[in-house]
């Protein structure tokens, strides 16, 4: 299991479009993906879960991946956050 803290930097926060991009990316990996914030844990492959984080710019999140491709999944997801969800499109 891998864990990593990250700050949401894109100005609009995790709105619908970034949430779609994130869920679609996470869905490509076999590993489970969770997001923790304020003692709250959601499934990162569930768009409603991600949306209800209501994460705005500056929010602190803890990412967790767990499974056979957890490293690859974490790297890709972090990259998506760092690129402000711009390259997550299919």
């Amino acid at each position: 299991m891998l864990k990593k803290n990250i700050v949401v930097t894109n100005p609009e926060g995790i709105h619908a479009r970034p949430a779609s991009a994130l869920v679609r990316l996470a869905g490509k990996f076999e590993s489970e993906f969770f997001i923790h914030t304020h003692g709250y844990k959601i499934n990162g492959k569930s768009i409603l879960g991600v949306l209800t984080l209501a994460a705005e710019c500056g929010a602190n999140l803890e990412l967790e991946t767990s499974g056979p491709d957890e490293k690859k999944a974490m790297d890709a997801i972090v990259e998506l956050f760092e690129n402000n969800f711009k390259n997550g499109e299919d």
């Binding site: 479009r17 949430a19 779609s20 869920v23 679609r24 768009i47 409603l48 879960g49």
Partner: peptide
């Protein structure tokens, strides 16, 4: 976005 909701495994 709406289609992603329909595929939401938790939902």
């Amino acid at each position: 976005f709406q289609r992603d909701i329909l595929k939401d495994p938790d939902l």
